[in-house]
């Protein structure tokens, strides 16, 4: 991916490469500062070496209302370790210096980003080497200010659709989202689940028919190789969070074992 500009071009190149290899892009979620700043960077570097196609980099927030217990606990640890938005941008910069080439999208709740300032955040995140932003409590109706900031930096603004979104909402999201659309696989919060939704294929098809070609990435609940096999043919990418963080309790070795198992053919 060397030589491709960070932001939308890098994300497009990521999906093109995965498509060429006939697979969905694997985008692990990992929060900066869990279990410590240094160990989180080591985990992300290990994931990069294990074939992650891109990253959702977690910024901690005191009140993560879209997250289940595992990510809540991990991000509380990160906060206790003093992690701020600024520190997460430092982390992205350091990861680039240490050779991580894959796209990195910062996932943060809105309030810490507002405190930083939307325009300043997009500018500084792009300069640090990040490629996009994912804000779970920012629906499309409230996203105009962010859209403008992201557009002027060629920075991805990922928006969500959920199983409850109707055709009109899906179309509105597709018209504004850049980089990819984040499909929430279930009505619920983040967290590993034994089975994925029965109507997943129908949901993805419903979004696909209105997405106008923008890549679709599925997240929430994906935790096993069986899940991955189920969705590989449906979507352009998938996000794994809670199950990975649980594995990371076993350090880099735990991360390695989990990913090897998850990606087993």
């Amino acid at each position: 991916m060397t030589g491709v500009e960070h932001g939308l071009p890098a994300i497009a190149a990521m999906f093109a490469a995965a498509r060429a290899a006939q697979r969905a892009a694997f985008l692990p979620y990992y929060p900066i500062g869990y279990p410590s700043y240094t160990e989180s960077l080591d985990a992300i570097i290990a994931l990069a070496e294990l074939g992650a196609d891109g990253f959702e980099i977690g910024v901690p927030f005191s009140d993560p209302l879209a997250d289940g217990p595992v990510i809540q606990a991990a991000t509380q640890t990160a906060l206790a370790n003093g992690i701020t938005v600024r520190r997460c941008l430092d982390a992205v910069r350091e990861l680039r210096l240490r050779g991580v080439m894959q796209p990195m999208l910062l996932m943060s709740y809105l309030n810490p980003l507002l405190a930083y300032g939307p325009a300043a955040f997009v500018r500084d995140a792009k300069a640090a080497g990040a490629d996009g932003v994912i804000i779970p409590d920012l629906p499309v109706e409230e996203a105009a200010e962010w859209a403008a900031a992201c557009r002027s930096h060629n920075f991805a603004q990922v928006l969500f659709v959920a199983p409850t979104s109707d055709a009109a909402r899906i179309a509105a999201v597709a018209a504004q989202a850049t980089g990819f659309i984040y499909l929430v696989s279930v009505t619920g919060v983040t967290g590993a689940r034994t089975g994925l939704s029965a109507d997943l294929a129908g949901f993805v098809a419903r979004v696909r028919s209105r997405a106008g070609g923008i890549p679709l990435v599925l997240g929430f609940g994906i935790s096993t190789a069986a899940h991955v096999r189920q969705i590989e043919q449906l979507t352009d990418g998938f996000i794994v969070g809670s199950a990975l963080i649980k594995a990371a309790q076993g350090g880099v070795a735990g991360v390695r074992a989990f990913v090897t198992e998850l990606r087993a053919p």
Binding site: P139, E142, A162, T164, S165, V184, T187
Partner: peptide
Amino acid sequence: GGRFVPETLIPA
């Protein structure tokens, strides 16, 4: 005011 919640809740 406004609405700043996950997409899942907007239809509700």
